[in-house]
Design a protein around this nucleic acid. Structure first.
Lengths: 191, 191
DNA sequence: GCAATGATTGACAGTCACTGACACATACTG
DNA sequence: CAGTATGTGTCAGTGACTGTCAATCATTGC
């Protein structure tokens, strides 16, 4: 069985345990036993207990980066960022994905430690996207780009995304309209 | 000796150890021994090793909250937030504070785990300030406030702050102008 | 068909953050 | 002086994570 498949099997097992007992209350030993492997082997597939939950976020991040590269260079940064959020919007549109993601989000929100790790991943993703946009701006001649403002812009777009996600989690509402509303409200004046 | 004083003594000792050996490489036992107390007593003053470093951030957060309450209710949220960031600007103006804060920031940046915890605290602070602004808006009659947009706005302001801090850490530049530049660029259109 | 090789695994021991329980000492209060 | 609150050390225990070693298993070359 491929590494990817084993990871997926572990993740599914672990997540159902987390839903049942909570993240902190579930030990790695229990997960390993439920999967049918030693604790040591668990750590060969995931660097930490956190990563079991945050792994899907990493894959979503890669997808977002791909979407960003696919955007036309002349598009405004803000609109490109909005489009790179589309994978999340699409996942939310699929009821199966939405249920699963909501369960994960609930697990993350219930553990401060895990939630912090989640924010750490989000921050790294922001750096990646900012770097990509910086590179894109450098290739396109014209007015000089302000690195500082660009990074803040990426952070602002993610703030919209984050606010929307927590808001939609609390009271079920359509995702895309909320995201569009916040991103319209915070859109930088300089295009 | 007061609790506060003991905490401060532990923090000073721990920070110098962190600077020397790094955060992860310094054990709680070492810190406790350097201070001259048992490990158990260390945990009576700080709930975790992280908190030794993040404690000063908590106090700064309280100061920011105080500044925000002191702002006039009719002021725009964006400007009020900018003013609540003043304590950071002021600390940066004092060379002694700047050196100390920069050292702390370097410690935090070097440990992904600690950095994540730092982001977690920042997020909680954002929720607090958003709650305060929401309450302020509710008291003031007039047009209804969009909770979602308000939260995103707070997140956007913090994105400016965060971008500025990391930028100024990398290449020494005056703090206030950078912060003002980003916050001018991301200022929401609706006042 | 078989041996060498490399990857995967379990078992075990060890480190470190953190917690609970208990005993002891000091200082304040009636 | 008895009682109580508070701060402390000691000890044992849990749980995440790591290093090491030996066994197993599949692949490759001959």
């Amino acid at each position: 069985m491929s590494r990817r498949a084993v990871q997926s099997r572990i993740a599914r097992t672990a997540e159902s345990l987390f839903v049942d007992k909570g993240f902190e209350e579930t030990t790695v030993d229990e997960i390993a036993a439920a999967v049918g492997m030693s604790q040591r082997s668990f750590f060969r597939y995931f660097a930490s207990k956190d990563e079991v939950v945050l792994d899907s976020l990493a894959r979503l991040g890669e997808e977002m980066a791909e979407r960003l590269t696919a955007r036309p260079p002349e598009e405004s940064e803000w609109d490109s960022l909005r489009r790179s959020f589309d994978p999340i919007v699409e996942r939310y549109a699929d009821p199966g994905c939405r249920e699963h993601d909501a369960a994960l989000q609930r697990i993350v929100d219930c553990s401060p430690r895990l939630f912090a790790a989640y924010l750490g991943r989000l921050d790294r993703l922001q750096r990646t996207l900012a770097e990509m946009l910086l590179h894109r701006a450098a290739c396109r001649p014209g007015r000089a780009t302000d690195v500082l403002v660009l990074r803040a812009t990426v952070g602002g777009a993610f703030a919209c995304l984050h606010a929307t996600m927590t808001h939609v989690m609390a009271e079920p509402e359509a995702f895309a309209p909320c995201l569009d509303r916040t991103m319209a409200a915070l859109r930088p004046a300089a295009v």
